Simulated scan of single mutants.
Amino acid sequence: MTAGLQISSVTKYYAEGNNRISALEQVSISVEPGEFVAVVGPSGSGKSTFLSIAGALLKPSEGEVNLNGHLLSKLTDKELSHIRLKEIGFIMQSSNLVPYLNVLDQILLVKRMSGKVRAEDKTFAIKLLDELGLHSKLKNFPDELSGGEKQRTAIARALINNPNVILADEPTASLDTKRAHEVVSLIANEVRSRQKAAIMVTHDERMLEYCDKVYRMEDGRLSL
């Protein structure tokens, strides 16, 4: 079985009247387990469309996505939903935490969505939060956390189902420089120690030192 994420000759276009507008043009990328890659490019270059296709949220017009051995074009909507929950960890620009849940319950909510919470799930959640420097914050609510702590909680939430692929969309957008470095360095450490295939879309050139490869996207085309 092919591990990691392989995107092969993916094109995405939209019909606008009689015109065909291309959002992505023949995009190919392969990310292995333990590899952390960045995709940078100006607004409107196709980065969001690319991440949506990589995350099984959007279907390509042409080409193929192979996520940990699953050809996404062959899957039903129900199977795609299962892949998003079990195989992909999403880290968004804002942490999107639930205001009335404490840090530990934020993480376990993902487990509840996929079934019941077992004792070992709780143990793993506490271990993750410990690794991310949040052990003293287990019972804290989002309004009691700093921006960096919220993003670290979001990283733990992305990892709780032990997904094979991590997709981060501008994870430092709302952070100052110190917190941004802290968060991306933690993502990089988790990716390598847990052997995840990870892609970070970012405008933040300061964060590229943590990545194994940097791709540029312009006008829907991806290049190294």
Score class of each variant (00 low, 15 high):
L51Y: 08
L132N: 08
L132H: 12
K122T: 12
K59D: 13
L129K: 14
F50G: 04
D121M: 06
K59T: 15
F90L: 06
D143P: 05
Y100E: 12
H135N: 13
G133R: 12
S94W: 12
L109H: 09
L85S: 11
L75P: 06
G63S: 10
L71A: 15
K86C: 01
I91K: 08
D77H: 11
I107G: 05
G34N: 06
L129V: 09
H135Q: 15
E144W: 05
L132F: 12
G63D: 04
F90Y: 11
G46H: 03
S45T: 03
I126M: 15
K122C: 06
L51E: 05
A125N: 01
L101R: 00
L71C: 14
K59C: 15
G44Q: 00
T49W: 15
Q106D: 10
S81G: 09
L67N: 01
T123W: 09
S81Y: 03
V39R: 04
L80N: 06
N68R: 00
S43H: 07
G115P: 11
S52P: 05
A38L: 08
G69Q: 02
H70I: 02
K116E: 14
G69F: 04
P142M: 03
S52M: 14
K111A: 08
P42R: 08
P99C: 04
A56G: 12
D130L: 12
A56T: 05
V39W: 14
V98K: 00
K47Q: 03
I83V: 12
T76K: 02
R112Y: 09
E144N: 04
L104W: 09
L132P: 10
S45M: 03
Q106F: 04
I83W: 10
I88Q: 02
V65Q: 05
D105C: 08
S94L: 13
D121Q: 00
S146K: 01
V40N: 02
E131C: 07
S45P: 02
S73K: 12
S43T: 12
N96Q: 15
G55T: 08
S81E: 09
D105E: 14
L128D: 10
N68L: 00
P142E: 09
I53Q: 03
F124C: 06
K111N: 14
K78M: 13
G115H: 11
V98Q: 03
R84F: 11
L104F: 11
K116C: 09
S95F: 15
Q106S: 05
L80Y: 06
V40H: 03
N66K: 11
D105F: 11
A125E: 07
F141H: 07
E87R: 00
